[in-house]
Design a protein around this nucleic acid. Structure first.
Lengths: 225, 225
DNA sequence: TCATCATTTAACCAATTTGTAACATCAATA
DNA sequence: TATTGATGTTACAAATTGGTTAAATGATGA
């Protein structure tokens, strides 16, 4: 059973949405503001239906917060009143998100929900990705890293690099390969950029600093379990 | 041998791509339009490199046609000029496709091609790139060499040379051939450089030092199993 | 807007690898 | 076996690679 979080300030629209989506066989939680949405967001949430125009924290800001601060990848369908807002949402499309312009028919919305959930579930098997190596646990779902049971704070790029390495222990990654995998938008950064990220990860790992190894001429790697 | 279909209208870009990809050991077919791309697409095509901005049928439409009408699942790497076009591609991300934003370095593109092909080939039987001769095991995947069960440390060039020989036992490799195979980016080193590398490998192989044999006037080789 | 953090570039140094040259040795054959 | 060209060895020089720090740039949030 999928749980869908609806964030919409207009009480009428909110009720119509909740009623129909509920009727279609999903569990719904409907709230009137981003603040309340934050409260009700949980690991059980399968999809967020998010009005872009909200009082207080806007839907867009809410989405950013979820993605950047909470490191939460729950798919989002934005409800936009004006089609111009598509631009604003450009940055989110990569994450498998979607938008739908008001007014929309309930059937279209339900079809869209189904499609997004299907897409999300398709990747789901990949999502049980938690990598453990001795005392280091990299959780690619929660986007967290635990070292000796203590959480260590990595930036986005740092996290992505560590995840790439941990997902493929025993495999060498040259700087170029790492850039090819992780810098899809700006694939022209210098090789040395990778070094610096690696250095910072190592620093944050303290006594585990040589967890990420390097073999001259081959690349960075971590040892096979 | 993988065949890569390049669809790019800019003749300069097209030629640069074809030249470099060809050079990297792939077979290439380069065309200037989606229409021509459709003609040249076949079951032998391993990967499509597709410019999003094409005259006539756009790259995006071309991709849709391939997927929806032809039911063809050949992986696609989209070449996008503007990062905004990411949204357009959102629908394709599920299919294991990829995108890369211009401008990109050729090396990064090659790394990406390699990664995509590897991912795509993951289902195919893994070609075992491990060569064993008596007590010597050369693992071209892990990049390790075991001698009498003990790991010996080779540098990159040393490893590449040993791998080349072990992958083709019974075949003579002249210095010139070895340089042509392994010094693709700088094929102007002296012949004698190879000798030195061979000497260093032999030293590291200790009692196995005459595992790499030489036949005067023919070249280096190892004996057929 | 400003302040803050993340990212990227640049510069420096150390370590390692790679390439060259010089010399020693070997193998083929006259 | 003497000659000659090919191969093996060694020492050194050059180039590449990797680690680190600081400064410049870019993104994000109050």
């Amino acid at each position: 059973m999928h749980e869908i979080l609806i964030v919409e300030d207009d009480p009428d629209v909110r009720e119509i949405l909740a009623f129909n989506i509920d009727n279609a066989g999903y569990a719904t939680i409907a709230v009137s503001s981003a603040e309340k949405g934050l409260d009700r967001l949980s690991s059980k949430t399968s999809l967020i239906l998010l009005d872009v125009m909200l009082p207080g924290i806007s839907g867009y800001q809410f989405a950013q917060k979820i993605r950047n601060e909470l490191r939460n990848n729950t798919p989002i369908i934005f409800l936009t009143a004006k089609s111009e807002e598509k631009d604003l949402l450009a940055g989110f499309n990569a994450g498998g998100d979607d938008y739908i312009s008001k007014p929309f028919s309930i059937n279209v919305l339900l079809a869209r929900i189904k499609a997004v959930l299907k897409r999300y579930d398709a990747t789901a098997p990949t999502q049980d990705k938690v990598y453990q190596h001795n005392d280091l646990i990299v959780d690619a779902v929660q986007k967290t890293v635990l070292l000796h049971g203590k959480s260590i704070e990595l930036s986005r790029k740092e996290f992505d690099i560590l995840t790439l390495l941990c997902a493929n222990p025993g495999t060498y990654f040259s700087r170029t390969t790492i850039i090819a995998e992780l810098w899809k938008d700006a694939p022209y950064v210098l090789d040395r950029t990778v070094d610096v990220h690696i250095a910072r990860i190592r620093t944050k790992m303290g006594d585990y600093r040589d967890f990420i190894k390097n073999r001259v001429g081959f690349g960075y790697y971590i040892e096979k379990a």
